[in-house]
């Protein structure tokens, strides 16, 4: 080749294309989990606007409408924004709950947690749930049962008693019901499923995941230092959503039929599994 004249752009282009086939590109790992985690960690949502029923479409419609229609539409849009803000701007049906982290965790001192085979001990448990969290409307258990669109499961383990407070967020089929038992246990339920692979991939450092048996079905016990837990939910309507939860206690996630339940608690693993298994 040396000394050979390069006749034309076409010839040179041909050589470059051939060279392209020989380039040793680095192997690209799957970036999707990292990208999604970064998005969930705080990047603006695309679609705060896009999700609000197609903001661009609304604006286009507004341009065509008269002033009165414009005013009505703006009021409607403002109402949507207020509602969206109230539920945390999450994907419909799934709300991103932001919880202040406590300074200590029930399992922080034993962050190896279940890996050691021993249950998580709780000596001086901090609150698993923070006061003042926007979990939706405070309702009676009966109302939650009527409005949730699914059979709300309630722990029936002897001595556990009734929930001290019941919350309902959203409406069927994307309603979410939260049952609080003092400051030690919170059970959140909704229609949908969990993608365990996804949440294990981006679990915070210092946290551990353990498969457990909850009433004959598989569940996941997540423990460790105060952590941010990202969970991919398969919603009942076929869509998927991520939820990022900052957790100061331990978390048990399991599924009962079409309903996914998440128990946040300061209780140790075995007790939490007993409580979960008794949910009827």
């Amino acid at each position: 080749m040396t000394g050979r004249r390069l006749a034309s752009d076409d010839e040179l282009g041909g050589r470059l294309a051939e060279l392209g086939g020989w380039i040793e590109w680095p192997v690209v790992p799957d970036l999707s989990a990292r990208v999604i985690a970064a998005i969930e960690a705080g990047a603006p949502q695309p679609g705060v606007l896009a999700r609000l029923s197609g903001f661009a479409d609304v604006l286009a419609g507004l341009r065509r409408a008269g002033r009165r229609s414009l005013l009505i539409a703006l009021i409607a849009l403002l109402a949507i924004v207020v509602v969206a803000a109230a539920i945390g701007l999450g994907v419909p049906g799934i709300r991103i709950e932001l919880r202040p982290l406590a300074t200590a965790s029930p399992s922080a001192a034993t962050s190896a947690g279940p890996a050691s085979g021993s249950p998580i001990g709780v000596s001086t448990p901090p609150a698993a749930t923070s006061p003042g969290i926007a979990l939706g409307l405070t309702v009676t258990l009966g109302d939650a049962q009527k409005l949730a669109g699914f059979g709300v499961l309630v722990p029936t383990v002897p001595g556990f008693g009734s929930p001290t407070r019941v919350h309902l967020l959203g409406s069927a089929p994307r309603a979410r019901v939260s049952l609080e038992y003092g400051d030690q246990v919170q059970v959140t339920e909704f229609l949908g499923a969990v993608d365990p692979e996804a949440f294990q991939k981006i679990l915070s450092a210092g946290s551990t995941v353990e498969r457990v048996n909850v009433g004959g079905t598989g569940g996941y016990w997540i423990a460790g230092a105060p952590h941010e837990l990202s969970v991919l939910y398969r919603n009942a309507d076929g869509t998927s959503s991520w939820e990022v939860i900052e957790v100061t206690g331990n978390v048990l996630i399991w599924q009962a039929g079409q309903v996914t339940l998440r128990l946040q608690t300061t209780l140790d693993r075995d007790v939490a599994v007993d409580v979960a298994s008794s949910a009827r």
Binding site: V28, D30, A33, V35, G47, V91, W242
Partner: peptide, 16 residues
């Protein structure tokens, strides 16, 4: 565009 990050994950894998 409607906020489904799982769908976006698929797009990431297709174009990464």
């Amino acid at each position: 565009r409607r906020g489904d990050v799982t769908a976006y994950g698929d797009l990431v894998r297709r174009h990464q």
